[in-house]
Design a binder for these strands. Structure first.
Lengths: 139, 139
DNA sequence: TTATTTGCAAACGGTTTGCCGATTA
DNA sequence: TAATCGGCAAACCGTTTGCAAATAA
């Protein structure tokens, strides 16, 4: 049973054949496609139809939204137009402005600083989005 | 002459009547609508047509893209679907998850930390996007 | 004059939705 | 069985674009 399938059970999300396939593809996405994998709905649909070619893209849309609302996935809009998804986890992204490659990172210092800033402005920090855009240093 | 109109001159952007009106509305947007003003194209079009009701929304789209490419405006996709614009300036945003209100802030510490992180990952920091999401602390 | 810009309406692309038969718990 | 879900195709909505007339330099 895939990671996401388990989370569905936890949260009482009904599991259908289609959802199981989508959950499986998402759960395996990083392992198979590497760390910079943030598939959009179209890409997801392509991968899913390899397993079951009856699954419609409407179902992928509905499922991905469902998973997002359940806190299982997070949705990114790195560039408007196409949303991209990955399993929920609080890391940040560095985007290579030349190749489009995405590097993930976490940094406790930044996280603490953010909390402090929000407090200073009179808010409790609930969530954050940090994207760095950079170009590779050649050596 | 509005702030943006001046920048257009600098960058050699041809100034038409329509662009002057749009530049004016954008330049005045913060003063009139307050610090949380990040109008979308539709809102911009509404404000612009008060001055000249012949200006089409296609022109607003084209102009806003032009200004963005000239580095005069920045485009935000706080939530996908509708882009929002403001005069270019490197501050960050804190978004009230309850009211949608947007608070702007700058923080040198965070900026330095970001630069350091990018370096550590082998990149030169070119740009960044930081959005905090929080809920107001009641007192 | 000549390259550029505008308004209009149609096209576009990602996403959502109504309908209704199929499936899950 | 009752509630929910999935497939299909049409609708939706923000944005872009081709065209011919208008305009800036």
């Amino acid at each position: 049973m895939s990671l996401i399938e388990e989370k569905c059970k936890e949260k009482g999300v009904r599991l259908t054949d289609q959802r199981k396939v989508i959950a499986k593809v998402l759960s395996e996405s990083k392992e198979i496609y590497g760390s910079k994998d943030h598939p959009d709905v179209d890409e997801l649909h392509k991968r899913v139809t390899v397993i079951d070619d009856k699954i419609s893209i409407a179902t992928v849309y509905r499922t991905v939204k469902l998973f997002e609302e359940a806190g299982i996935l997070i949705k990114h809009d790195f560039k408007a137009g196409k949303a991209r998804y990955e399993i929920s986890d609080n890391h940040n992204h560095l985007i290579d402005i030349n190749s489009g490659e995405i590097v993930e990172f976490v940094d406790k210092d930044i996280e603490n600083l953010q909390k402090k800033i929000a407090q200073k402005l009179g808010y409790n920090l609930v969530d954050h989005k940090l994207e760095l855009y950079g170009s590779k240093i050649k050596k």
